[in-house]
């Protein structure tokens, strides 16, 4: 039984890492109704910039702040040169734009910093330690704490501030938001900047785990089932979705895997997401379309 809990807990903690990626999507989806395909590239770009600065012997916090600034400049450039040109276009147009953007950012990151694999050490050891008879990863606990803090901050931003009200208003109805005088460009800038910061945090944690390299941008694909299960519009949903994916894929691997030959972990989340699409297409916490009767 304790083995079951060990797998479960390990899975939940790993799931937090998925949530981190998913949150970046939720932010932009909420504010502009767009699935930002470039989120993965932003994660890669942030991690690559950070690690390259470290390797050029910039101190840790200096590199962090500098990368943060770069992400803000990136957000500004995206708003100025892509989004602003596409106001009030259908979501599919914006989606295609983010698809193109993902290639540009990926290419840019590797053109500037090179394409080799970098190791990244955040100074948090990945030694397992024992808690009540279970072995837990210290790094996973650290990642969970970071993600938890981020979620609390973002929830406060969305629900308790005027900027948050404006962001949710824009997500609901762009034309009406313009009509009441909300400055769309400024909000998009804010939300892409915040998504960039979330991307940086996710990039550092994932980079420390997998190494900083091209395939980092592909973790986008792992965020998809998380979003489908949690709902595209809810930060809380992204967390719960991540936990469900993390826990279920590890449990499936350990307990169902041996029966059907293993390797389940890689496709199990997608099957789960498909089941959710059939039963609850808006996800657990997604906003359902409001229908008055």
């Amino acid at each position: 039984m304790s083995f079951f809990f060990e797998v479960l807990l390990g899975g939940l903690l790993a799931g937090v890492m998925y949530s981190l990626i998913a949150i970046g999507f939720v932010l932009i989806y909420k504010a502009s109704g767009v699935f930002n395909f470039a989120q993965g590239s932003m994660v890669l770009f942030a991690a690559l910039t950070f690690v390259s600065l470290l390797e050029r012997s910039v101190p840790f916090w200096g590199a962090f702040v500098f990368t943060l600034l770069i992400m803000l400049v990136l957000a500004w450039a995206i708003e100025r040169f892509v989004l602003r040109q596409l106001v009030n276009r259908p979501p599919i147009t914006l989606f295609m734009a983010t698809l193109g953007l993902s290639y540009i950012i990926e290419g840019l990151a590797q053109a500037v910093w090179g394409a080799q694999v970098h190791g990244l050490d955040l100074g948090v050891s990945d030694e397992p330690f024992e808690l009540g008879g279970m072995l837990l990863s210290q790094f996973d606990l650290f990642a969970a704490a970071v993600a938890g803090t981020l979620v609390v901050l973002l929830s406060l931003l969305f629900n308790k501030t005027r900027t948050g009200i404006a962001l949710r208003a824009v997500a609901d109805d762009q034309l009406a938001a313009l009509a009441v005088g909300i400055r769309l460009h400024r909000l998009w800038l804010i939300v892409w900047a915040v998504a960039g910061v979330v991307g940086l945090v996710a990039g550092l944690l994932w980079g420390a785990r997998l190494g900083v390299q091209f395939s980092l941008s592909l973790i986008v694909l792992k965020a998809l089932p998380v979003l489908i299960i949690g709902g595209f519009t809810s930060i809380g949903g992204a967390i719960v979705g991540g936990l469900i994916i993390g826990a279920s894929e590890k449990l499936a691997e350990v307990f169902i895997g041996p029966i059907i030959g293993g390797g389940i972990e890689n496709w199990f989340p997608y099957v789960l997401a498909m089941l959710f699409l059939l039963v609850r297409p808006a996800g657990l916490f997604g906003e359902r379309a409001i229908e008055r009767v």
């Binding site: 005027r162 404006a166 949710r168 009509a179 909300i182």
Partner: peptide, 24 residues
């Protein structure tokens, strides 16, 4: 301008809708 078809922010509360008008 008040738009044709009302265009309320459906997922915001009534008071939150009103607040959006004053943000500027």
């Amino acid at each position: 301008q008040v738009l044709e078809g009302r265009h309320c922010f459906a997922h915001l509360g009534v008071e939150e809708n009103l607040i959006t008008g004053a943000l500027i």
